[in-house]
Amino acid sequence: MFRLIGRHFKEAFQGIFRHFSSSLNSITAVTVTLLLVSLLTLIIGNVSQITKTLEDEVKIFVKIEDEVEDAEIPALTRKVENVEGVSMVEFSDKDSELDKFIKEYGEEGKLFEIYREDNPLSRAFIVSLREGYSISDVASRLEKVKGLTGVEFGGVSTEQFLKVLNGVRQGGYVIVLALTLVAIFLIQNTINQTIFNRRLEISIMRQVGASNSYIRQPFVIEGIFIGLMGSVAPVLATIFGYKYIYETVGGQLVSGMLTLQPVYPFAFYVSAFLVVVGIVVGLIGSFLSVNKHLRWRR
């Protein structure tokens, strides 16, 4: 068994060295691809983090109509909780609304204490959103709930920013996928060349009855090896590059409003992801080209 695996490894490495320039091309292609994948993954990871932070901060403030009796509040709370996109509802009575109001105005705010007796402010719900829901969509749904009036939220700018971030994230996924497919295609080309170089051996092996998996193995090993070699530079670049950037900006953007993912474990997760992508790309690339050639012409 070990002898067998040894044989296949020997053949795989012979394959790589016999047409070194093609292997080198493939390794380079995988390297470039994975560098881009790394960059995008780093961006996606941070964008996700920032999005989450922003989304957590975004709350919708809804005033309750004065006609609603206090006794009806629990029922209304449940109604609001059931609105699509709502994750949490917090009730705030007139007193606490006044407290907030006073606090906002600092020292001068104390003047408003006179309204404590005959409070003109409305009771309100502070509504948190479920992940992935658009603020304005949820706000307009809340507006339709009977008993509620005056919906307010962080404003269009936050929402637009979140939309941009989401666009970046989704665009990133698409590009990562496209790049992966390109790498698979390039590895296929190299393996095709190995297969061409070894077509005589392959035809003999088929003729004498070597199993398909036996014939396939050295090529698959070669593909995986190319994927692994291609991921070395991107992994180093990811760890040291991200560390450098993180330290340069001090882990924060926009003067502390947005925090970046910490180097550990984030850069290491991304690195592991790159290695996995490299291996999978090599595996799929070699599998596809070998299977295409080994398909029994029957």
Binding site: R206, Q207, V208, G209, S211, N212, W296
Partner: peptide, 10 residues
């Protein structure tokens, strides 16, 4: 079947 051809060829 395709997968049985190698064994047959032996």
């Amino acid at each position: 079947r395709f997968s049985k051809v190698p064994l047959y060829r032996r």
